[in-house]
């Protein structure tokens, strides 16, 4: 056995998973970084969405939503939209973009875990979103947003949970996106309902009674509520405990669903021979 082959046999699989995930994240980052237009679009699109919705609120004469000012409420919602855009789209498109590049067969023929690749793409986008988050916060401050953060660590944890929960939804959807070969229309279709159901731009209390619980099924809804409480209302760990735990549990459920669906999709692609049909 050659030294390379021996080294591969000796590598633990948990390390392989992490290494593949980080490598996929790097590929995602490098791909984005090579396109200036995409890099500029990343913070600008949510900012423009924020401005449009803020305008709608002001035209309607509404300056506050329950318990919060409109600007602060919208800024946090815009951060969640960035998390959504970064992770759901990247996970959804993960393997589809590889089909476009012609790299999908090589990835699927490797012994790597597909979940590691999908997660890696989400992680890569997550890191790329950091400047956009900063831009959003600056825009919010420019429009007079006021933050009341009693526990900075809690706000940071809540912000991270927003991204993790969006990543969980992206992973859960990725199998469906791949199998349907229609990631773009599906992601577009999901976008607006989730924006409404999770309360990105409008308070969930404005939803009809029968619709409000549907948003509660999404982990990002609870992560967003924890973030708003910790960043706008000065809430502490105890006050946000329930939302954090629900976010974590729901995220785990979505990740498990994603793992199962990716495995099924892998089998289906091999059964039907539709690997290259994108």
């Amino acid at each position: 056995m050659t030294p390379v082959r021996r080294a591969l046999v000796d590598t633990p699989s948990a390390w392989n998973f992490v290494a593949a995930m980080l490598a996929a994240a790097r590929v995602q980052q490098r791909s984005w970084a090579s396109n200036v237009i995409l890099l500029l679009r990343r913070p600008l699109t949510p900012a423009l969405g924020f401005l449009a919705v803020l305008l709608a609120y002001r035209i309607s004469g509404q300056t506050a939503v329950p318990e919060e000012s409109v600007v602060g409420f919208l800024i946090v919602g815009t951060l969640a939209i960035q998390a959504w855009n970064a992770t759901v789209w990247s996970c959804g498109f993960a393997l589809q973009s590889d089909a476009y590049h012609g790299t999908l067969p090589s990835i699927l023929a490797s012994p790597s875990n597909r979940m590691a690749v999908v997660l890696g793409y989400g992680l890569g986008d997550f890191v790329l979103s950091a400047p956009s988050v900063l831009v959003t916060l600056l825009i919010g401050l420019g429009f007079g947003a006021t933050f009341d953060v009693a526990h900075p660590l809690l706000a940071l944890v809540a912000m991270t949970l927003v991204f993790i929960s969006a990543l969980a939804i992206g992973v859960a959807c990725s199998g469906l996106f791949i199998l349907s070969r229609n990631a773009n229309p599906l992601a577009n279709f999901l976008q607006t309902p989730v924006h409404i159901l999770a309360g990105f731009y409008f308070p969930r209390s404005a939803l009809p009674d029968w619709l409000e619980p549907v948003g509660g099924l999404l982990p990002i809804t609870h992560a967003l509520e924890a973030l708003r409480a910790s960043a706008l209302d000065g809430a502490g760990w105890a006050a946000t405990f329930d939302e954090i735990v629900i976010t974590l549990l729901a995220s785990v459920a979505f990740f498990v669903l994603g793992m199962w669906s990716l495995r099924r999709v892998d089998h289906e692609l091999r059964r039907t021979g539709s690997l290259n049909l994108f």
Binding site: T11, S13, W15, A19, S31, S106, S112
Partner: peptide, 29 residues
């Protein structure tokens, strides 16, 4: 496996980055 066709590499990445990624997928450090 070398699959046919003229695609199969990340064009925005350089040769080393392409090899690094696929090496990682096979568990190489």
């Amino acid at each position: 496996v070398l699959f046919g066709g003229d695609k199969g590499l990340y064009n925005q990445l350089n040769a080393l980055e392409n090899l690094r990624y696929f090496g990682r997928l096979y568990g190489m450090d």
